[in-house]
């Protein structure tokens, strides 16, 4: 069972993530991403929107596949900044590791 944390997007504010809710899931980021990997990074942005905090923490290593190349941010029609969202999620996970 997945618990939903509606406050997750707000929690990410202090890790520099404040654009995830702008995303309308068009998939441009996943189409242009050089990883060509399972709807990445769109999937991660969607997890934030849904408050699926546990999904992120269960498989956090996926975030480090991101090359931080910025192509997704460059092409996002909603200026949702997916590349920086992924970087912010990495910060959130590192903080979680250090505190636990």
């Amino acid at each position: 069972m997945t618990l939903v944390h509606p406050e997750f997007a707000e929690e990410l504010d202090r890790f520099g993530v404040d654009t995830a809710l702008e995303c309308f899931n068009c998939g441009t980021c996943a189409a242009i991403c050089p990883l060509i990997y399972e709807h990445f990074p769109r999937k991660m942005v969607r997890y934030i929107q849904l408050g699926a905090r546990d999904q992120i923490l269960e498989h956090p290593e996926e975030l480090w596949r991101c090359l931080h190349c910025g192509l997704c941010t460059q092409t996002c029609p909603r200026e949702a900044n997916p590349g920086e969202v992924i970087l912010g999620l990495k910060r959130f996970v590192v903080d979680h590791w250090r505190r636990n």
Binding site: P34, L35, W64, R65, L67, H68, C69, L71, Q74
Partner: peptide, 22 residues
């Protein structure tokens, strides 16, 4: 230019195989 493609280098410490693929 602004639409350049990544060389794959940033992934080399976490996943050399992914880095090579890119």
């Amino acid at each position: 230019g602004t639409f350049t493609n990544c060389c794959g280098g940033p992934a080399e410490s976490i996943s050399p195989s992914l880095s090579k693929e890119v």
